[in-house]
Design a protein around this nucleic acid. Structure first.
Lengths: 204, 204
DNA sequence: AAACTTATACTGAACGGACGGTATATGTGT
DNA sequence: ACACATATACCGTCCGTTCAGTATAAGTTT
């Protein structure tokens, strides 16, 4: 019943398998949707049996929280690393977007689950952390845009809408991104930033 | 059991109430998610009783299909109206985006349901129509961008990614759009196009 | 216009099945 | 021997659906 082993020797294997279960669940949740996924589906995806599965999770809901929990943390830490270095807003924006898209690409299923279930999970215990982390990251982006506006390098009519456009573009990416496709995350990031900064109109 | 009346006198009222049921369902599906929505929730949302609800729908699944079905048709017709008039690619792009965002704003719940359930509904009977209509609309947008590239008015590094950025921005809009908010659909459309065309970088 | 017949709108209880979760048994490695 | 991993069978509950029945409005006959 989801009891982590006390023996240090077995701890590592347990955590590794648990992570495999979470990742497998992320993919199934993303493809079928959380509520439409039955325990039977999770069994099929993990290769375990009913009892074995419950050895690694307290319940289906906790598995969902595990999928979205700690999803934003690595990205937030990376973002703060980037912002710690003093740079022009444009450079900050480009590096943030690149780190963000690399994260999206490597956690594609988790991101889709987040988008799909964010509404059904509002006001759920443990959910507020995820939402706060998300809001925090968006605030960091907003700050960069605002800083660019203040120092004169950006001049959007509506700062808020600029952020929303960027959020929309990146958050939509998991829907079509193909790891074996033509474009990698860093190329996508570069071109998003190119378009957001200079637009697609030909220079006249 | 969801049998439309044959008598012409009652047909109108039936269709009106059925539409109310579908719209109410759209909102509940959007907020809670389709699978997480119980018949009890639908009863509460519609004001009907269990049996009464089944008078207007053959089943829960059909109700979901009704929500997304015929969602794209009005937009597609409007798009073809716009494209029938000979105009410059930029004008076409701006008008398409505006019509699109007006549609998104007035069918916000339906759109959220579509985004949330598109994966769970793949390879479902009746679903291919919706997907085809969606693909058709995206193709119309892609054609406009391509026409702009050919005649020299647009010059994006990657035509496909320009489309995906626009799709992301607009498809993300229902997630934050507030009908009583500061910005209406036409203003949002204008500023999206401003940013996509000219970027947010200050003129130097 | 009154009486009658049928189509339609709605009710509420009950059913059948699926689903998440648990208890218990049996290996398996330390 | 003990902790841990996995297997199997089972339970209670919830949920989508059905159905027999009632009330009312629409159409028809007299």
């Amino acid at each position: 019943m989801a009891t982590p082993p006390t023996r240090p020797a077995l701890r590592a294997r347990y955590e590794r398998r648990r992570q495999e279960v979470v990742d497998a669940a992320a993919k199934v949740f993303a493809l079928r949707g959380y509520h439409a996924t039955s325990i039977e589906d999770l069994i099929e995806a993990t290769g375990l049996t009913r009892g074995g599965l419950y050895h690694y999770m307290p319940g289906k809901r906790d598995l969902l929280l595990a999928v979205v929990d700690e999803l934003m943390d690595p990205l937030l830490r990376r973002a703060e690393e980037i912002l710690a270095l003093p740079q022009a807003p444009e450079a900050h924006l480009r590096e943030l977007t690149q780190a963000w898209l690399e994260h999206v690409a490597s956690h594609r299923w988790h991101m889709i689950v987040f988008s799909q279930e964010r509404r059904t999970l509002e006001q759920e215990p443990g959910w507020s952390d995820v939402r706060d982390a998300r809001a925090h990251f968006e605030q960091l982006l907003a700050d960069v845009l605002e800083r660019g506006r203040r120092d004169g390098s950006f001049s959007m009519r509506d700062p808020q809408l600029g952020l929303l456009m960027l959020l929309g573009s990146v958050n939509y990416t998991p829907q079509w991104y193909d790891p074996s496709g033509r474009l990698g995350p860093e190329e996508i990031a570069t071109r998003y930033c190119d378009m957001l900064l200079d637009g697609i109109r030909s220079a006249r």
